[in-house]
Write a protein that binds this DNA or RNA. Structure first.
Lengths: 143, 143
DNA sequence: CTTGCTGTAACCATTGACATTACAGCTCAA
DNA sequence: TTGAGCTGTAATGTCAATGGTTACAGCAAG
């Protein structure tokens, strides 16, 4: 099992937008060149990100920009914007009620599985776009 | 994105084995009845669990039993036994090295993505089969 | 040697990811 | 006002994984 590449591509896109939005027009073709994917892939994801209120895309003339400060955009925000919303674990829904295990398995497991997903999401919320941007500028200046 | 149902089915199987191994022969058909899936599904997963040293299956006569104490079996053990081993996040491998974002994105992200996966796995390791078994017996006795 | 169970292989249908082509609509500048 | 450039989205094709099922060879014990 693996998450789709949308989360990492979206993060890459946001870094491109944040880095270049003040100096040039950041189009889907431009970002596609940095990521090395088809521009349509970028446009599809940009639709998800703008629907989530993370970026704004100018119609007609083109070009994307952040819709809010980089400090307020976390990896969790990005993840939720581009991944389908569903439980992390797939649970068989209809165990046998006549079996002591079957009739209690959901009571035993549901909270624990939710806790695992929560731990993952909480860790995602620790990283902001602003941190990534800072680190990127430091690395670039050092080299 | 969702994990396969193998993890939850495997957990259900282990609870059945732990509950009933002392009083009856726990066959794939028996467990399939409690979970409500085809016995072949159970047998496929039992193969993974025994390969991981979690259960033992008697050839010929049939029947499964725990290969080690329930205290030493965590949800993470189960997860690793039945899920394909791979990174949680799919990362585009070849970004553009001429772009400041492209040439640094992996340096920025790899550790953070690994940390997210580690947080999830660490939470999985918190629950043991023994805990689930205790809770199951308490719930059953209370009712 | 029959019975019951396991381990596997084969098959099918469905789904999602990923990549690409195509095209309609919008905005601005020439 | 018309063309150029960009966005949004639909359609298509390929590929892999999942989930469900049937079939059957092999093993062990009565």
């Amino acid at each position: 099992m693996q998450f789709s590449s949308r989360t990492t591509i979206a993060t890459h896109m946001l870094l491109c937008i944040a880095m270049f939005q003040d100096t040039q027009k950041v189009t889907s073709t431009f970002m596609a060149g940095s990521i090395h994917v088809d521009p349509v892939v970028v446009r599809n994801i940009s639709g998800l990100l703008s629907a989530a209120g993370i970026i704004e895309v100018k119609a007609g003339v083109g070009g994307a920009s952040l819709a809010r400060p980089a400090e307020t955009i976390t990896l969790l925000d990005v993840f939720k914007a581009v991944e389908k919303e569903e439980a992390l674990f797939h649970f068989h829904e209809h165990p046998e009620p006549l079996c002591p295990v079957g009739r209690n398995i959901h009571r035993l497991m549901d909270d624990r599985l939710g806790g695992i997903q929560a731990a993952m999401e909480q860790q995602m919320a620790q990283t902001t776009l602003a941190q990534l941007l800072d680190e990127l500028r430091n690395v670039e200046n050092a080299s």
